[in-house]
Simulated scan of single mutants.
Amino acid sequence: MPISENRLWFVTGASRGLGRAFAEAALRSGDQVVATVRRADALTDLAYEWGDRLIRRELDVTDRAAVTELVDDVADTVGTPDIVVNNAGYGLVGATEEISEAEARAQFDTNFFGALWVTQAVLPHLRTAGQGRIVQVSSVGAVGAMEFFGLYNATKWALEGFSVALAQEVAPHGIGVHLLELGGFATDWFGRSMRFAEENGAYDELREGIFAAPRYPDLSDANPAEQGEDATDAPPSIAAESLLELLELTDPPLRWVAGPGAKDMVRMALEARRDDYEKDPGFTWPSGSTSTETTA
């Protein structure tokens, strides 16, 4: 069921991009937001506009103890969140052979373990309240996978794996779980926030086919707000409005697909998986399992 008005949101990675858009949408809806950021001076303009309805708190989601301490403090001083949005994350590009141990661990620490630590920290408070929503910001890359994005895809597949189990575990306690599978949005994800592995020449030809160059692009000065007329990425506000739509549904789905071409990408990924399974002569695809498109 839709949760009550005057809700309290807890949004990680809220300083810019999607996280900021989620915070803004919640504030415009009349709700209160605890926005976690990496720098204390982030979101100054929103704080000026919305006053004490926006509460900024510094947080590194990879620090489990810090996450638990902050969530407990928010519950004690502000209230138990109604909506928790695990948004903090970044993209890592590199062929599997190119990824260093440090890069792989850092990617999982933020994209997967960060969401896990926040989820674990909020659950005791949500169970006591007997209600709440946990929104995991996922990707169409959690349904399929693409060359050079394997480690990023892996974090989102892992996020979805535990969240599907989580949804079943916490449903008896009145808690909903949702996976927001997003397509392309005009954020720093494919820009200044993107990280690249060191190139291995064995993959130059493949890289040329993906990035139109044998080397990874330099996105250090990329600005998502200055895209050209042909850009296909949508503004983050579209994702935020789609999330608000999801939260108002009486019987919301576990997975919610949003973004330019996102439904088509999910459909193609699922069709490719089906076709691969059917190469096994002993495997029979479930009869009558026609897919229906989720509105987002």
Rank of each mutant, 00 (worst) to 15 (best):
M1T: 08
P2Q: 14
R7M: 04
L8A: 05
L8V: 00
V11A: 08
S15A: 15
G17C: 06
G17R: 06
L18E: 03
A21Y: 07
A25T: 06
L27I: 01
L27Y: 01
L27S: 03
R28E: 15
R28L: 15
S29A: 15
S29F: 00
G30W: 00
G30N: 02
G30M: 01
D31F: 09
D31Y: 05
D31E: 07
Q32G: 06
A35P: 12
V37W: 05
A40M: 12
A40G: 10
A42K: 10
T44W: 00
L46C: 11
G51R: 13
L54F: 04
R56F: 05
R57E: 04
V61R: 11
A66T: 09
V67A: 01
V67K: 02
L70S: 06
D72Q: 12
D73P: 00
D73C: 11
T77W: 04
P81R: 08
P81K: 08
V84Y: 07
V84K: 11
V85K: 07
G91R: 10
G91F: 13
L92F: 07
L92H: 03
L92M: 06
I99H: 08
S100R: 10
F108T: 03
F108R: 02
F113N: 06
A115L: 04
V122P: 06
T128W: 03
T128E: 14
G130Y: 11
Q131F: 02
G132S: 07
G132N: 02
R133V: 14
Q136Y: 05
V137I: 15
G141N: 14
G141R: 01
G144M: 05
A145F: 11
A145I: 08
F148E: 05
F149R: 10
Y152D: 01
Y152Q: 03
T155M: 01
K156N: 05
A158R: 05
A158H: 04
A158N: 04
L159C: 06
E160V: 04
L166E: 04
A167S: 13
Q168K: 14
E169D: 02
V170I: 10
P172F: 04
G174Y: 02
V177Y: 06
E181A: 12
L182P: 12
W189I: 15
R195K: 15
R195Q: 15
A197Y: 01
N200Q: 12
D204S: 15
R207C: 10
G209W: 06
F211I: 02
A212K: 08
A213Q: 05
P214H: 06
P214D: 08
Y216R: 09
D218Q: 08
L219T: 14
L219D: 05
S220N: 10
S220G: 13
N223C: 07
P224A: 00
A225L: 08
A225R: 12
E226R: 12
G228F: 03
A231N: 14
D233I: 04
A234V: 01
P235S: 12
S237P: 00
A240T: 07
A240N: 05
L244N: 13
E245F: 10
L246Y: 10
L247A: 08
V257A: 07
D264T: 14
V266D: 11
M268L: 13
A269S: 14
A269M: 08
L270H: 09
E271L: 09
R273Y: 10
R274P: 11
E278L: 15
K279Q: 15
K279P: 03
P281R: 12
P281N: 12
G282E: 11
S289G: 02
T290H: 13
S291N: 02
T292I: 13
